[in-house]
Amino acid sequence: MCDVYSFGVVPMEVLTGQNPSEMLMRHMNLVDDFVLSMEENCVLQIVDNVVLSEGGNEDIQVFADLALRCVKNKGDERPTVKEVTLKLMRIQHLVRSKAE
């Protein structure tokens, strides 16, 4: 389950443009900030401008939801690697179908 948690941090980095190590030096926590933004339904406010300009809000939200599920505190609440893979494939299909 640790691999899934660690994977969940990667989409957070991509979406926000933030590096968790740099944030820790500033006494901030990427995961906590991201989770709070998701809970307050304002994740788009912390998404990097490049991502906002290139991705649709629905696509960003779906990707953010997956990241959130991966970093649940309890390991048994996190998706399996297989579930993550299937979700990523669905997201990829969604994005490609919109581009056509």
Rank of each mutant, 00 (worst) to 15 (best):
C2P: 11
L88C: 05
Y5G: 00
T80H: 04
D48N: 15
V14K: 03
E83R: 12
V81S: 13
T85F: 14
M12V: 02
I91N: 05
A99G: 09
Q45E: 10
M23W: 04
E83N: 11
Q92W: 14
M23S: 01
L94G: 08
G8D: 04
V14Q: 02
L66K: 02
M89P: 06
D65F: 00
L24M: 12
N57E: 15
T80N: 05
N57H: 10
S37T: 04
A64F: 06
L94P: 04
L30Y: 01
V14N: 02
V35Y: 08
Q45G: 06
D65T: 00
A99I: 12
H27P: 03
S37L: 06
E54F: 09
L52R: 08
N19K: 10
N73E: 12
S6M: 06
M25S: 08
T80R: 04
E100T: 11
C70W: 01
H93R: 15
L68S: 02
P20N: 04
R90C: 15
V35H: 07
H27Q: 10
C42I: 12
G55E: 14
D3H: 09
R26L: 08
K82D: 14
N19M: 09
E77W: 07
L44D: 11
E77F: 09
D48R: 04
E39K: 13
G8T: 03
L36A: 09
C70A: 03
H27Y: 08
V62R: 14
R90V: 13
K98N: 13
L66Q: 00
V14C: 07
N57Q: 11
G75P: 01
D59G: 11
